[in-house]
Each structure stands twice: as C-alpha cells, then as structure tokens.
C-alpha cells in the first residue's frame, strides 16, 4: 500500500458514496446511466470472486465487500425503488458491445487461461470502458447536475491515481501488471474531456454544460 493507491481507493469510495447520497437525498436517479452502473456491478462481481479463494488483508476484504454491496444497492435504487425517475430514453448506449469486446479480449489477452484469471481480466477490460454509457448520456442531454459531475470526477481520479501507484510499484517493488496498467491508461483517458470541463466550469461554480 502506498499513498497513491490509498488516495485512489478513497476517491473510488467517495465516488460511490456521493452517487448513493445523490440518489437517496433527491429520491431520484435522473442523469445517472443505469447501464454504466450495471457494468460496474458486473466488474465488481467478476473481479471480487477471489474473496472466497484469496485473502489479502482485512482492508482488501472490507473494501471488496463494500464495493459489491454498494453496487448492488445502486442497481436496486435505479431499477426498482426509483425506477420512475430513471431516464431510460437518454440511456441508449449499446453496452452489450462493450461486454462482447471485453469477453473476447479477455479470452485472447490474459496472464493465464483459467476461469478466475479470465474473469479478472474481463473485469479489468470492462471497467476501462464501463463509464461510456454515462458519458454518452451526458453528451446526449448536454448537461449534468453538479453532484453527478463530482461523482464522475472522483471516479475518474481513482484510476488516474492508480497509474501513479503502478509507477511507484514498478520502481519500488518491481511489480508490473501490464494488463491493469494499459487498461487503466485507457480508462483515465476516457475522462480527459470531462476533466477539462470539470476544472474549467464546475470548479468555478458553474454548471456542467457542454459547448453546443
């Protein structure tokens, strides 16, 4: 554990909590892509199956359980409890495509051809692109509530901080997992436009509206 990873994890945790608070307080999931949330739930489910087989630390186990539980809670809020507020007609990204491509890539490019390893690899590839339905939805509506943009900023920063963590681990521990690193770079790259808008608009107290 190093400082970059710790802040990264805290940023990830903050993102999830911000999203839950937004939905719970406003009793509404408007502006949130249910498809991205479904993908994140699939990501956590496939990746954290090792909860049953591989103990790392109390911290690791606790975080995994929290991420799993919170993602299922989010899905429940969007598709059941507050489903009347879900903007289904704006959430039109073909997310099946992301799943198919991630499955194929995971079968072709992995560290080891075993069930758990392929599921882990699939979760890494899918996580890299899971935000696309959400970004697509914002592009379509042309705006996002500020709390939604705080959520996205925390979620995007998390993988960016992981990149610093991987650089650190490479030099200090000789640890390099290029599947995670390359996917993490893609994942962070997808947020670039958003980061720019967030810093130039939201941080100055304006709303996140896309230039026409």
């Amino acid at each position: 554990m190093n400082v970059f990873r710790l802040i990264g994890d805290m940023s990830h945790l903050a993102a999830i909590i911000i999203l839950l608070i937004k939905i719970w307080r406003s009793r509404s999931c408007s502006g949130i892509s249910g498809k991205s949330q479904l993908l994140f739930t699939a990501v956590f489910t496939c990746r954290y199956l090792d909860l049953f087989t591989n103990f790392v630390s109390i911290y690791n186990t606790t975080m995994k359980i929290f991420f799993l539980a919170s993602s299922y809670a989010t899905i429940y809020l969007i598709f059941m409890k507050f489903k009347a507020t879900y903007n289904r007609n704006h959430d039109t990204f073909r997310f099946e495509l992301l799943i198919v491509v991630s499955v194929i890539l995971a079968l072709l490019i992995n560290h080891e051809f075993s069930a758990t390893e392929i599921l882990w690899t699939f979760s890494i590839y899918l996580e890299a692109v899971a935000i696309l339905p959400q970004l697509f939805m914002i592009t379509k509506t042309g705006e996002a509530e500020s709390i939604t943009s705080h959520y996205l900023f925390a979620l995007g920063s998390y993988r960016g901080l992981y990149i610093l963590n991987w650089i650190y681990r490479y030099y200090v521990e000789g640890h390099l997992d290029w599947i995670a690193v390359l996917s993490g770079i893609v994942q962070t790259g997808l947020y670039c436009d958003f980061f720019y808008l967030y810093i130039t608009r939201v941080m100055k107290g304006k709303n996140l509206t896309l230039p026409a």
Binding site: R5, D9, H12, R47, D50, N54, V56, S57, N60, M63, K64, F67, H111, E112, W120, Y162, N165, E173, G174, H175, L176, D177, W178, A180
Partner: peptide, 10 residues
C-alpha cells in the same frame, strides 16, 4: 520484471 502472483489491488 513481470509479477502476477496475486491481484492484491481493488
């Protein structure tokens, strides 16, 4: 050097 003994990250 490549190392992938276990996935200890989240």
């Amino acid at each position: 050097k490549y190392c992938n003994k276990k996935h200890d990250e989240l």
